[in-house]
């Protein structure tokens, strides 16, 4: 490693604006938000995925990630989160490329559906207005979302995850400096 990259330039304000974008994204599944001040995360981590991680993860949240040694070190230093080897133990799962199977992550229980993992999934591109048809809470009629680089067989996995409702994994999609979200209740149909 040649030197640790910095985290948020202004930790308080940047964490707030990142959280607010993620909150809006989670409340309106399929809407894409651009983050205003993401950190320069170490490759191959996108600025958006880095920002989401720093805004939400800390010493209380076990993290699993497959973004390489530099990103692991960066996350450990700036967020201070314990890094676990088994994705099934993680509260945050940060995946680039092929993520672990959704069924292998924590989905919560019927009494505690909130104790489920959040998957921060880095994809190639996010675009509104075309692609998947999303319906469910947070969506008036339908939102369209095109996800370039979604993992193979994702829609089948997502349907199985949705069938667990109210249990299930929630996903924050990141590409470049953009985020969108798929809470567990969102129904996705191929566009």
């Amino acid at each position: 490693m040649t030197g640790l990259l910095p985290g948020f330039a202004d930790p308080v304000v940047d964490a707030q604006s990142t959280f607010r974008a993620v909150l809006e994204a989670m409340a309106r599944p399929g809407r894409v938000h651009r983050l205003s001040a993401p950190p320069a995360a170490p490759a191959p981590l996108s600025p958006a995925a880095g920002a989401v991680l720093l805004a939400l993860a800390d010493g209380e949240t076990p993290l699993w990630l497959n973004a390489g040694a530099d990103a692991t070190e960066w996350a450990r230093f700036h967020a201070g989160c314990p890094v676990v080897a088994d994705a099934g133990e993680a509260e945050f799962v940060l995946a680039i490329g092929a993520p672990p199977a959704l069924s292998a992550l924590q989905v919560g229980t019927d009494e505690d559906p909130h104790r489920s993992a959040t998957l921060i999934l880095q994809v190639q591109a996010l675009e509104e207005g075309a692609g998947w048809r999303l319906t469910g809470p947070g969506i008036e009629r339908e939102h369209r979302l095109r996800v370039a680089g979604a993992p193979e067989g994702f829609l089948a996995q997502w349907a199985a995850n949705r069938a667990l409702s109210p249990r299930g994994v929630d996903i924050i999609l990141c590409a470049g400096d953009r985020v969108a979200a798929l809470p567990r209740g969102t129904m996705i149909e191929e566009g």
């Binding site: 959280f19 993620v22 909150l23 989670m26 409340a27 805004a55 939400l56 949240t61 559906p113 909130h114 489920s116 959040t118 809470p137 947070g138 109210p166 929630d170 809470p183 567990r184 209740g185």
Partner: peptide, 12 residues
């Protein structure tokens, strides 16, 4: 609180 809020939104 933010983590709890995101889960709250995900499970209305």
């Amino acid at each position: 609180i933010r983590r709890a809020l995101l889960k709250a939104v995900a499970v209305p």
